[in-house]
Computed example of a mutant assay.
Amino acid sequence: MSKYQFFRQEQDPASVTFLLMSSPSFLSEKAQLLEQGFEVVGDYIDAADDEEAIAKFRSGMIEPLSEYTKATEEGGLYYFLSGVAESIGKRLKGEKAPR
């Protein structure tokens, strides 16, 4: 098993990258990412290969990331307006809105 460390720039899920911690260039690459504004995401992940590490990262991070997004002012406003639009759409179609 190898150890992988994941990084993300701000809260953009598309900016996620990772480094293999056993690589001889790990520390210098990590320093470069941090200088570019990336932040370490969570703890390291043990995995047999890159694909497994990515799968473990996605399975453990998609929900917390969406919950974090909902907790921001912008995310809260987005989800509130989405909920209102969905409710209005259902009412216009004659469906009952959930209570």
Rank of each mutant, 00 (worst) to 15 (best):
A53M: 05
P98S: 07
T69H: 10
D49C: 11
F7G: 01
F26S: 02
M1H: 09
P64F: 05
E95H: 02
S23N: 03
G75L: 02
T72G: 00
G60Q: 05
K96R: 12
K70S: 09
R99Y: 08
Y4G: 04
S66Y: 09
S22G: 06
S59C: 11
S22M: 05
G60K: 00
F18S: 04
F80M: 15
A85C: 14
E86N: 15
I62S: 13
K30L: 09
R58A: 08
S59Q: 13
G76L: 10
G76Y: 02
F80T: 14
V40R: 05
D50K: 08
P13N: 03
Q11I: 03
A55R: 06
A53F: 07
P24D: 14
I88Q: 09
F80H: 14
M21C: 12
L19R: 10
A71V: 13
D43V: 08
K56S: 07
P98H: 04
E95P: 05
S28G: 06
Y4P: 08
V40H: 01
R58P: 02
A97L: 02
I62M: 08
K30Y: 02
E74Q: 11
S59R: 12
S82D: 12
L65K: 10
I88F: 08
T72S: 02
Q5T: 03
D12F: 03
G42W: 00
E95V: 04
G76N: 12
F38N: 12
E73G: 13
E51V: 04
E35V: 05
A55I: 09
G89S: 15
L65H: 15
V40S: 00
A71E: 09
Y68W: 13
Y78E: 04
E39I: 01
D50R: 12
G42H: 00
G94I: 07
S66T: 05
F18A: 04
L19P: 00
K96F: 07
G37N: 01
I62E: 05
P13D: 10
K56T: 01
A53N: 09
L34H: 03
S59E: 15
E39Q: 11
E51S: 09
D43K: 13
M1S: 15
K3L: 15
G37C: 05
D43H: 08
A48I: 13
G75Q: 00
E67Y: 07
E10G: 13
E95S: 10
L81M: 05
D46Q: 11
S25W: 02
F38W: 06
K70A: 13
L92N: 11
R91F: 09
R8P: 04
A47V: 12
Y78F: 14
G37F: 02
G37I: 06
L19D: 01
F57V: 02
A85R: 15
E86H: 15
Q9Y: 11
D43Q: 11
E52G: 06
L81R: 04
G75H: 07
M21P: 07
V40M: 00
S87F: 01
G76P: 01
L77N: 03
P24R: 15
E63R: 10
